[in-house]
Simulated scan of single mutants.
Amino acid sequence: MSVSYHKLFHLLIDRGITTIDLQKQAGFSGNIITRMKRNQYVSLESIEKICHALQCGVDDILEFIVEEGKAKK
């Protein structure tokens, strides 16, 4: 199972917020944005900061993707 942050980037576009603005509001490093753009692991602490800054829930910014051939039976 992998994580996709496409919902976050769509939300930012809809709200007219840049990734730099989000980084400043949430108080995390630019490395976090890079990791999200690559759909890599981001700590729950960072996710919490983003949700707090955007006043949204986790399901508004990420989704889990089941990889083919790896689905549980």
Score class of each variant (00 low, 15 high):
14 D>S: 14
14 D>R: 14
14 D>V: 08
14 D>G: 05
15 R>L: 08
15 R>H: 03
15 R>A: 12
17 I>C: 10
18 T>L: 04
19 T>K: 12
20 I>L: 11
20 I>W: 10
21 D>N: 11
21 D>C: 07
21 D>S: 13
22 L>I: 02
22 L>F: 02
22 L>G: 01
22 L>V: 00
23 Q>D: 06
25 Q>R: 15
25 Q>Y: 08
26 A>G: 03
26 A>F: 04
26 A>N: 05
26 A>M: 03
27 G>S: 09
27 G>I: 03
27 G>R: 09
27 G>C: 05
28 F>R: 07
28 F>P: 00
28 F>C: 07
29 S>G: 10
29 S>N: 12
29 S>A: 15
30 G>D: 09
31 N>A: 15
32 I>M: 08
33 I>S: 03
33 I>H: 01
33 I>G: 00
34 T>E: 09
34 T>A: 15
35 R>M: 13
35 R>L: 14
39 N>V: 06
40 Q>C: 08
40 Q>I: 08
40 Q>E: 14
42 V>K: 00
42 V>F: 00
42 V>E: 00
42 V>R: 02
43 S>R: 11
43 S>C: 04
43 S>V: 09
44 L>I: 13
45 E>G: 09
45 E>N: 12
45 E>P: 00
45 E>S: 14
46 S>D: 12
47 I>Y: 01
47 I>W: 00
47 I>F: 01
48 E>W: 07
50 I>E: 02
50 I>G: 03
51 C>M: 09
51 C>S: 08
51 C>K: 04
52 H>V: 13
53 A>Y: 04
53 A>M: 04
53 A>S: 14
54 L>K: 06
54 L>C: 08
54 L>A: 07
54 L>H: 06
55 Q>S: 14
55 Q>L: 12
55 Q>W: 06
55 Q>K: 15
56 C>A: 05
59 D>C: 10
60 D>W: 00
61 I>Q: 05
61 I>M: 02
64 F>K: 15
64 F>A: 13
65 I>R: 14
67 E>R: 11
68 E>I: 02
69 G>P: 04
69 G>L: 07
69 G>E: 05
70 K>V: 08
70 K>C: 07
70 K>T: 15
71 A>T: 11
71 A>S: 15
72 K>P: 06
72 K>H: 11
72 K>A: 14
